[in-house]
Design a protein around this nucleic acid. Structure first.
Lengths: 348, 348
DNA sequence: TTGTATGCGTTATCAC
DNA sequence: GTGATAACGCATACAA
């Protein structure tokens, strides 16, 4: 039994459980039982000696070796379109805060909603044998679900392939909520900036918008839906197009707060005031939404809570408990970017 | 050699390299050489058979096993105070974008600037045998540095313990830059909201502020430094205190853009306009900074580039190349929240 | 160019 | 309550 393999380890080899055992005068098995919090009985004397030796040697267990044997890594993969988006940053924070106490670590992947990138990361996570996945923000469809082959517990945040456990809000209701708020303020010409076409979240919000208009008996001709995106890019041009319409809308829905803030600015640059001339509603209620001037009226989506709930559902799955769909509530937060329609003003 | 251990694996055992080898009619060694991109020669025929078998079996290598042997995990730990902060979200994005191409994955840890949490995560990362660490945002001092015991390559983002490679900006210069901008606009009574006391970033910016004032010959009595924080909490009260001063400042520095936006709002609520009555400068140039009204004048800190540079430095370290200190430039972005001092207005 | 054997660090199993 | 031993899945030194 010669030790042949020794590929010139640059870093000093850290103490192993055998080192600890030797120093404590016990077998590796006993040392393991103490250090891995096993429920196998160990004498008090032995326990103390092992603990002392471990401390003295600065022993740090190697989770790779442990995981190889136990088939559990206590790591979860998190797939998110983009952490730079404050909404996803909030989700991520919730995920991490829920993972920590369970002693699970989070491997972060930004997909940019790019299926190729997503698949690449998926494979990387499977190679690392993560215990499970939390997937937020679309483009995780049936094909991707097939990659994990059901071998990996997955919890979606937002809508995903049927059958996959999921934590989400009702975006149709959210879209309707925002629209009804504007209708109640007297607006009839309400435009809707939709998010990216691939996003079910965006599609649902538009659906809610349409439904609310129909239910209020607003003529279909008043429906105006323009595809935007979830980022401020291109917003000034879109707003210009809206202002050029005849008659022009007196209110509008932005796909999220980030875009809403950009819309307010674009309107400002075109000489329109919010909310006096145009009312604007966003979605998400990201932290800055309440600090900008005018403070944004928005439909709050509990990003942080969604993250937490997803990890909790995943934890349940890993513990053998089935998980279904969790729907968290959204809430309209009326602030300063919307007001009663003043017939004398408006964009026209 | 009986196979005894079979702890009722709930998940179907995935194919191993032995399975692939058997199916391909070669030895595990040959299969390994093909699948791990070893430079050991393998016949073309063998290579094709192995690849085919791997594909057919849906083989996914187990990185845990590989890492146990190679002593490299291709994972890096990232310690950040809080991803919800757009600045750190940007840093994180840069880190991830640089890590991906190197096939490294990112394990994310939010420390909340809490030393206990930091140490807890540090240990978790060492147990996972990450290849290295990127640490952003303070509270990583000598004690923490000692934990890694030099066994782990660390790259700091921002100032850290001496001797540790670090990627940062010159925050003293940044603070001076912002202050000089206000001085050039004619302001003399400039207040400074400092970030948290523990933050060297905050301290440096204040130092720059003081230096610029001194160099401009502004009386020391005009120096006003109030401790704020990096979040908007408590901003209204601070602004109220500032407005109550006699004479009141005509301009102020916020510790970062997030706080600057809150300051603008608080001033607005107190009936002061920005920049007509008070000029405000922020730091970071987070994405929303240019979309709010008024658009924020700010000293841009290249968060994304810092993240990238840190990972590149870490990669160098891992490849045996030494890393020193990299200082990236900051840049004043003059927008709408600052203007020439109008003697007839001001807060007084 | 290929196969055999060994061990990475840990824990589960079994015998004591 | 303790210890020897066999895996976990893989990559490599060495022999062929």
């Amino acid at each position: 039994m010669g030790a042949r393999l020794r590929a010139a380890p640059r870093r000093r080899r850290s103490a192993t459980i055998r080192d600890v055992a030797r120093r404590a005068g016990v077998s590796p098995a006993t040392a393991s039982r103490v250090l891995s919090a096993s429920r196998h009985p160990v004498s008090e004397r032995g326990r103390r000696r092992v603990l002392a030796a471990a401390r003295r040697l600065g022993y740090i267990p190697n989770l790779l070796a442990r995981s190889l044997l136990t088939r559990e890594t206590a790591a979860i993969g998190v797939l998110v379109p983009d952490v730079s988006n404050p909404y996803y940053a909030g989700v991520l924070r919730g995920i991490e805060d829920a993972a920590g106490p369970a002693r699970r670590t989070v491997i972060l992947c930004n997909t940019d909603r790019d299926p190729a990138k997503l698949r690449w990361y998926l494979r990387a996570l499977m190679e690392r044998r993560v215990d499970g996945l939390v997937v937020a923000g679309g483009s995780f469809g049936r094909a991707e679900s097939a990659i994990t082959g059901g071998a990996l517990p997955v919890v979606m945040i937002g809508r995903g392939p049927a059958r996959l456990p999921c934590v989400r809000v009702d975006n149709v209701a959210a879209g309707a909520l925002a629209t009804r708020h504007l209708l109640e303020l007297g607006h009839r010409r309400i435009a809707c900036l939709a998010g990216p076409a691939v996003s079910t979240t965006a599609a649902d919000r538009v659906a809610g918008y349409r439904r609310a208009l129909r239910e209020a008996g607003v003529p279909a001709a008043h429906e105006v839906v323009l595809e935007a995106g979830f980022t401020p890019a291109g917003v000034p041009a879109l707003v210009a197009r809206l202002l050029a319409r005849e008659p022009a809308p007196t209110a509008l829905l932005a796909p999220n707060d980030l875009v809403a803030i950009a819309v307010v600015r674009a309107l400002h640059e075109q000489g329109r005031r919010v909310p006096e001339d145009v009312s604007v509603v966003g979605f998400d209620d990201i932290p800055v939404a309440s600090y900008v001037v005018p403070a944004l009226t928005t439909v709050a989506v509990p990003a942080y809570a969604l993250g937490r709930a997803a990890v909790e559902a995943l934890g349940g799955l890993l513990a053998g408990r089935p998980a279904g769909t969790v729907v968290l509530p959204t809430e309209l937060r009326v602030r300063e970017s919307t007001s009663v329609l003043d017939e004398r003003r408006g964009l026209a």
